[in-house]
């Protein structure tokens, strides 16, 4: 099975390479620019002014984390919690995770599975990609962050520790891994990538919204525990808290359970 999985992984990476590279370069560049912008704000001493411009409901939304956000480290870490960046990365994992559905839709699955290739090999390929692709993108972000820090830490600003950058990266990767599993489970029963992608994407958007709303509306807090985003708090890391291993455990545990479900569902289905 290892050889067949290797062939499939290589095939998928060849097809995805342009997207992966363009996204990695963009994310890394964004991180460099964030570091440069944060340095400029630090030099101009405008963090306090910016904080005062933030509307009250946003203050309530973010609480004490807002203080962290309006700092050199907070701006530098923006890429790890900005909605657009997280949405793009979730979009990537949904795209990769729905490859089995795309292969069935196109008919490529017929060609692959009519060879002596097990369905487990197809799913293993997807799991490998779902580990490697987000890790590659998040690593590119971390590299961009380090380059930015190397280029632009102004005098008077505390240089964020390398452990903070790695904690942010591990935390983000765990969130993406969770969505990988959920998307793979959806993709393993769908016949069309568009359907699987829409369901997974809509679910991600809804659960992200639930998590944000729960921060300002108490009744939603119980439901928010069902959202993977509830277990992803990068600003806590910026504030100096240690890597939340329990939250990461929940995200990776969910990912593992969803991947197991995906394998069972894909093995039982008609292709």
């Amino acid at each position: 099975m290892i050889r067949e999985t290797g062939v499939l992984v290589r095939h998928s990476l060849v097809r995805l390479r342009t997207v992966l590279l363009v996204m990695a370069v963009s994310l890394a560049t964004f991180q460099v620019l964030l570091a440069l912008a944060a340095a400029e704000l630090q030099r101009a001493g405008t963090f306090a002014q910016l904080a005062s411009l933030i509307p009250p409901f946003v203050r309530e939304l973010f609480g004490t984390a807002l203080v962290s956000m309006m700092s050199f480290s907070g701006i530098m870490a923006l890429g790890y919690y900005h909605v657009a960046i997280v949405a793009v990365l979730v979009g990537l994992v949904v795209t990769v995770a729905t490859e089995p559905a795309a292969e069935i839709e196109v008919g490529f699955a017929d060609l692959v599975l009519s060879r002596p290739v097990s369905r487990a090999a197809v799913m293993t390929r997807s799991v490998v990609l779902l580990v490697v692709c987000p890790a590659f993108e998040v690593a590119a972000m971390a590299v961009g962050t380090f380059i930015g820090l190397w280029l632009a830490v102004p005098a008077g600003a505390a240089r964020p520790a390398a452990s903070l950058v790695w904690s942010l990266a591990i935390s983000l990767w765990s969130l993406l891994a969770c969505w990988c599993g959920v998307s793979l489970a959806i993709g393993s029963v769908a016949r069309r990538r568009a359907v699987a992608g829409s369901i997974a994407g809509s679910l991600a958007a809804a659960l992200m919204l639930v998590d944000y709303l729960a921060r300002v509306w108490r009744p939603l807090r119980g439901i928010a525990r069902l959202s993977p985003f509830h277990y992803y708090n990068p600003l806590d890391l910026v504030m100096g808290k240690p890597l939340p291993l329990a939250d990461i455990g929940v995200l990776l545990g969910t990912a593992a359970a969803a991947i197991a479900a995906a394998c069972v569902l894909f093995n039982r289905r008609d292709v």
Binding site: R15, E103, G107, A109, L111, V112
Partner: peptide, 25 residues
């Protein structure tokens, strides 16, 4: 096996298709 509706990815070359499928045998 030759399917009735051939499901090759449109962005692949013929050589890539044969390479992938031969690698799976």
């Amino acid at each position: 096996y030759m399917p009735g509706e051939v499901g090759f990815y449109r962005d692949m070359t013929g050589r890539q298709v044969l390479g992938v499928l031969s690698g799976l045998s």
